[in-house]
Amino acid sequence: MTRKYIDCREFPSEMNCTVAISADSEKELLEAAVQHAVTIHHHADSPELRAQLVTLFHEGTPPTEAPRTA
């Protein structure tokens, strides 16, 4: 099983969030990412949010340096 992660540093925001979350399962990562998005970024928990978050998952572990943003 490959570890997965999502990294807020890839997405510029007003709060300059530097959180990266990783987990051993996609289900666990999704629940943690939804909790973070709702609590910190004030998104509504919806099927659309969950579907979008899954598309942002990467395999492996987050890099120590902030990724470059577009």
Rank of each mutant, 00 (worst) to 15 (best):
R3I: 06
K4R: 15
K4E: 03
Y5W: 10
I6E: 05
I6F: 11
D7P: 07
D7R: 07
R9L: 04
R9C: 04
R9D: 03
E10D: 13
F11N: 03
P12L: 02
S13T: 01
S13L: 00
E14W: 03
E14F: 02
N16I: 05
N16S: 06
N16R: 06
C17P: 01
C17W: 00
T18I: 06
T18E: 05
T18G: 06
V19Q: 03
I21Y: 00
S22V: 07
A23T: 06
S25C: 01
K27A: 02
E28C: 01
E31N: 04
E31M: 03
A32W: 01
A33N: 09
A33P: 12
A33G: 14
V34R: 00
H36T: 14
H36N: 12
H36R: 14
H36Y: 11
H36C: 11
A37T: 11
V38C: 05
V38L: 07
T39H: 13
T39D: 13
I40W: 15
H41D: 08
H42N: 14
H43E: 13
H43Y: 11
D45P: 11
S46P: 14
S46N: 13
P47G: 15
P47R: 15
E48L: 12
E48H: 10
L49C: 09
L49E: 07
L49V: 07
R50D: 07
Q52H: 11
Q52N: 14
Q52M: 09
Q52I: 13
Q52R: 11
V54A: 08
V54D: 03
L56S: 15
F57H: 04
F57M: 06
H58N: 07
E59L: 13
E59C: 10
T61R: 09
P62Q: 03
P63W: 12
T64P: 05
T64D: 08
E65W: 11
E65L: 14
A66K: 12
A66D: 09
P67C: 05
P67Y: 06
A70I: 13
A70W: 14
